[in-house]
């Protein structure tokens, strides 16, 4: 098992992962998630919470998931349009048959991994079919 979600890594990424916080350019308004240090226009950025509802642009049903995700295989990964920007994220609470491009989705707070069986647990944002 490759260790990547070690305590310092999980701790310092808590803000953007827990709250879906990205960066917004003060000059051109471009939004990015995960946040970047400078905009691609060269402008300075500030933190911004992203909208929690969006539209699924495309998706993949992943059967060859990493070992740590194997128990929830197949894992559905989606490209989601949040209006202000797009994100790639996991789609949950939906069977492969239910998922389709163009469907409305919303953000939920979920477990995203752990540092081995006894290590720190990492949480973050996933998306599920919109219930509203």
């Amino acid at each position: 098992m490759m260790r990547v979600k070690t305590p310092p890594v999980v701790w310092r990424s808590r803000n953007h992962r827990y709250k879906l916080v990205g960066s917004k350019c003060k000059a051109c308004g471009e939004v990015r998630f995960p946040p970047v240090h400078f905009c691609s226009c060269g402008g300075e950025v500030e933190e911004v919470e992203l909208p929690r509802a969006g539209r699924l642009v495309s998706y993949s049903i992943v059967y060859a998931a990493d070992e740590e995700s194997r128990e929830r295989s197949p894992v559905i990964m989606g490209l989601i349009d949040l209006g202000v920007t797009r994100v790639v994220a996991e789609i949950v609470d939906a069977s492969p048959e239910e998922v389709h491009s163009g469907m409305q989705v919303e953000a939920v707070f979920r477990r995203i991994g752990e540092d081995g069986e006894t290590g720190v647990i990492a949480y973050g944002i996933k998306f599920r079919p919109a219930v509203g």
Partner: peptide, 24 residues
């Protein structure tokens, strides 16, 4: 990118999303 691989969803995830986008 870390924004994608934090889900440990597997190596083909992004390629799968792009391939479906292309086909559709």
């Amino acid at each position: 990118d870390e924004g994608v691989n934090m889900y440990s969803s597997g190596f083909g995830s992004v390629a799968g999303i792009l391939m479906r986008l292309y086909m559709e």
